[in-house]
């Protein structure tokens, strides 16, 4: 569904990605793992057009999307839930969700999508008319994902969804991600929380200094000595 080939990118002449390649298959959960500064977020921002890559290719459903502006991504079916959630804090939760479906013109479709989301997240419905900034971290992350879902994406990109959440909430979040994947949605997830993520990811890439150093299915990587060494401290 999405193929990234030999991608190089960076900010203001500081290269961050050197030679990154990865591939996501339709209907799967793909995880990009790596320590802080490995270039995970840069990779995602390149995919959605926030950063112009210096070289390499990004192919989505057979077409190159490398110079496509960010705001056109949702029309292609790519939605990104950014790191730090980035909700519209001074807007109500309902308005945040409606903004998610800004490009959907059919009001009935929006309404049914909204109801669908309220069904999955009853907590959000309770908070419908509250300003988004007044919600707790976990609730805000739910709203951020829900806002991404409102555009009816085919590919959902999650950047550090567990950041700043309590362990119990993180578990809920991951359960939820599995659930939306089962509805047929393809998911790319970037996480520092590698061991937990590998439990449910179909395929994963381990990144280091702007390139992928290791790849395999979730269980393969869990067994890998290098992963154990980095993330569990077992040698």
């Amino acid at each position: 569904m999405l193929t990234v080939e030999h991608l190089c990118a960076g900010y203001d002449g500081t290269p961050i990605l050197h030679d990154l390649s990865f591939h996501v298959e339709k209907g799967k959960i793909m995880a990009l793992l790596g320590s802080n500064g490995a270039g995970k977020t840069t990779a995602l921002r390149s995919v959605v057009g926030k950063i112009k890559p210096t070289s390499g290719g990004i192919i989505y459903e057979g077409k190159s999307i490398i110079n496509m502006p960010t705001y056109k991504m949702v029309e292609l079916g790519i939605a990104m839930v950014p790191e730090g959630r980035l909700l519209f804090g001074k807007m109500t939760v309902a308005d945040n969700l409606r903004m998610g479906s800004y490009r959907v013109k059919n009001k009935r479709v929006i309404q049914s999508k909204l109801e669908e989301i309220y069904e999955i997240f009853p907590k959000i419905k309770e908070r419908e008319n509250q300003l988004a900034e007044t919600l707790s971290g976990g609730e805000q992350q739910m709203v951020a994902i829900a806002r991404g879902l409102m555009s009816q994406p085919k590919l959902l990109i999650l950047d550090e969804p567990s950041l700043g959440l309590a362990p119990k909430i993180v578990k809920e979040m991951f359960d939820f991600i599995k659930k939306i994947n089962q509805t047929g949605l393809t998911i790319i997830i970037v996480e520092q929380n590698a061991i937990d993520t590998l439990q449910f990811a179909d395929y994963a890439y381990l990144m280091n200094s702007g390139e992928n150093v290791l790849e395999g299915t979730g269980s393969e990587l869990l067994e890998n000595e290098k992963v154990k060494e980095i993330y569990l401290g077992i040698t």
Binding site: K50, T70, M73, E75, P82, K90, M91, Y102, R103, S151
Partner: peptide, 14 residues
Amino acid sequence: RATSLNKDAEELVG
């Protein structure tokens, strides 16, 4: 209003 609140997120919703 969304543009004034958060330019990053606003592009992501289209």
